[in-house]
Write a protein that binds this DNA or RNA. Structure first.
Ligand code: ZN
Ligand code: ZN
Ligand code: ZN
Ligand code: ZN
Lengths: 381, 381
DNA sequence: AAAAGAGGTCACAAGGTCAG
DNA sequence: CTGACCTTGTGACCTCTTTT
């Protein structure tokens, strides 16, 4: 339909334009100062005329004369039919017309007033505010998180890679792995300073790290990426694209915009993930009757109930904090959004885990952490 | 139409030229002479287009057609929305854009989008309504759930215990266990009729049952308790109090009032729990370097990524369904409430798991189910 | 030094407006 | 409806920086 050269675009029109430069006459009415318009050459008035009459129906509207009205500068108004027909004859194309521009004067000012919704009874605690103890835990979490944040190092590393010698736009895979490794390694430093973690047995801590480090690290990493505005760094992005591929990069990029703006909430959520027991229900007793159960039930050693209570404690804190800060409805919205973000991020974390370099890196970090834990446990021996 | 400079080249040269060039078609509009641009391959115009429209908001600016405008060299102007969307689709990355050069005059700073929660950005699917496929899955889940519901049997058993001889006000522990056992056993019948479950490997199904039956069963049980109004039955309550104790009974009773009134939503949530992979991140490859990892990593056999996608699929469906039915805000409220209810219920499930009778019962059921699964797998042998 | 891939420029050709 | 006048989007052609 549009395979021939009739549908001029700039490239083609320029050529013909050059050719016809000497004659600046409107192909429709003969007026001077004609220009390229809709695939032909016409004056501005004829251009406007054509655009305004795109829906003009040559079948319904007939010329009142013989359909051969002359078109001159002064006579072009005489007959709409013949003028439009001439426009088509000289090669004006409706297809070169573009859709109307968006009305940029629309202002966003409208804030939707959320409808009143009955209050659901979400939590156990009747308190709508955090207790003193909860505030101190929350404050501790926030403070410690920033204290151990690997962001300064990463930024430093980035600026060293970028500036001094010359403005390098390339970071190699190893450098990137180092920077991301800092993020994952910082998780243990973080948890180490949270009493609820250190009060657990070495074994439980090991298992938590081993099981949750991927997700805790990536969630924390998302916050760090945003804090440091790292996805604005060209070299950093490029290195990430190289290592993790386009899909993963894009997914993370989206989530970056979706992550809750409240850093405190995100930090708390990181802790929730760290204590995640994943709905596992296990009996602490010995597994007398479980003949058929697979080896995966080694998780039985897990002190799951305790861990679950800790997780719930932080979820409660997170939600009460959000209610306190944003009101009940917005808190629910944000909580759901946070959860969905985490779920989606988990997909990308799994993708990353399948990448040899990334997987190996995490295995190493987990092994290192485990070793560290064991050393701390038996400092005398 | 084509660049006429080709005419002046000798044939051989032109061939290689054409060959080299023709291998690079613009991924956006199909134009020739495309190059690497922003992470994809595009012609210069599309490159410019993309850079100029970095702030183009696909949410605010919609296609005036159906959002599937064709992109050709000549039709690329037709729809900004579709062109930009195609740019993103073919992998152009905003992040590969660089900030404006410094020596030039300052540009107007980007306006930072306030932390408004974007409604439809939450989930993976762009649709705000369920697709036909999703509706059939949902309808199937709902229907099957009611079909296999053990409630009729339980009610029958209750009335038999209560009425015929005399109005018995006592149900013994064994009878109660039988009734509750029906609930837990029904889970497998339920899942068995869900294609997403049956299409998994026997091994995976085993692990899911083994891992999630406690929670799936208790959540489903909560719905059944409410459907049958069982907590209005004196004898039933008394038996429960006897077996599970006062705290547990009261806790469940509270949750009973808190559970979402929408049965469809709860049923979907039961499925979500059934496919719960618990944020586990595992590498499918062999664990070459995992020296220190404990035995719990036997879970590696788990086809976690697949399972996670299934879970996400049902979560999406659940949320979209709720948005469709209640609007975005109420959907978030209900979703959060459902999640909190489940978390709280999980605590009681754990408590119950520690009760000898209950734990043994579940072990038996899990073992039975596993056996059933294996038999179904090898009907010939 | 050449190629590649970023950003920048400006004339041209679209769309929009409003008095006439 | 018309057309002078204005605003906005496009792309050929350019410069600049890093990689090869
Ligand atoms: Zn004219
Ligand atoms: Zn006429
Ligand atoms: Zn193109
Ligand atoms: Zn379109």
């Amino acid at each position: 339909m549009n395979n021939n050269s009739n549908l001029f675009l700039c490239k083609a029109t320029r050529n013909t334009y050059e050719h016809r430069r000497s004659s600046l006459l409107c192909q429709v009415c003969g007026d001077r100062n004609a220009r390229n318009c809709f695939g032909s050459v016409s004056c501005a008035p004829c251009k406007m005329f054509f655009r305004r009459n795109l829906d003009f129906d040559l079948v319904i509207n007939k010329c009142i004369y013989d359909g051969n009205c002359e078109m001159h500068e002064n006579s072009r108004h005489a007959c709409r039919y013949c003028r439009f027909k001439k426009c088509l004859t000289v090669g004006m194309k409706k297809e070169l017309t573009r859709p109307p521009r968006l009305n940029q004067k629309k202002r966003i000012g409208k804030q939707i007033t959320p409808p009143l919704i009955r209050r659901l009874d979400l939590l156990n605690s009747n308190r709508s505010k955090l207790s003193f103890d909860q505030w101190s835990i929350l404050s501790n979490v926030t403070h410690v998180y920033d204290q151990i944040s690997p962001l300064p190092k990463i930024l430093n590393s980035l600026s060293q890679s970028s500036f001094p010698p010359k403005k390098r736009l390339r970071i190699d895979g190893a450098t990137l792995a180092d920077m991301l490794g800092l993020i994952y390694r910082s998780i243990y430093s973080f948890l180490e300073r949270i009493p609820d973690f250190t009060m657990m047995s070495i074994h439980d801590r090991n298992l938590l790290i081993e099981r949750n480090l991927h997700n805790v690290g990536s969630t924390s990493g998302l916050l760090i990426l945003r804090d440091g505005d790292l996805y604005s760094n060209y070299a950093f992005c490029r290195a990430n694209l190289n290592t993790y591929g386009s899909d993963n990069f894009e997914g993370v990029s989206k989530l970056l915009n979706r992550l809750d703006m409240d850093r405190v909430a995100v930090k708390l959520f990181v802790v929730v993930l760290a204590f995640s027991t994943c709905f596992d229900v296990v009996r602490p007793s010995n597994m007398t009757n479980n003949i058929q159960l697979s080896k995966s039930t080694n998780r039985l050693h897990f002190n799951t109930i305790n861990m679950f209570h800790i997780q719930n404690k932080y979820i409660d804190m997170l939600f009460i904090y959000m209610v306190y800060r944003y009101g009940y409805i917005e808190a629910s919205l944000r909580f759901a959004a946070l959860l969905f973000t985490a779920l989606q991020l988990c997909v990308h974390t799994m993708e990353a885990a399948n990448i040899q370099e990334h997987g190996d890196m995490l295995d190493t970090i987990i092994a290192d952490t485990t070793r560290k834990l064991n050393v701390e446990d038996d400092p005398v021996v």
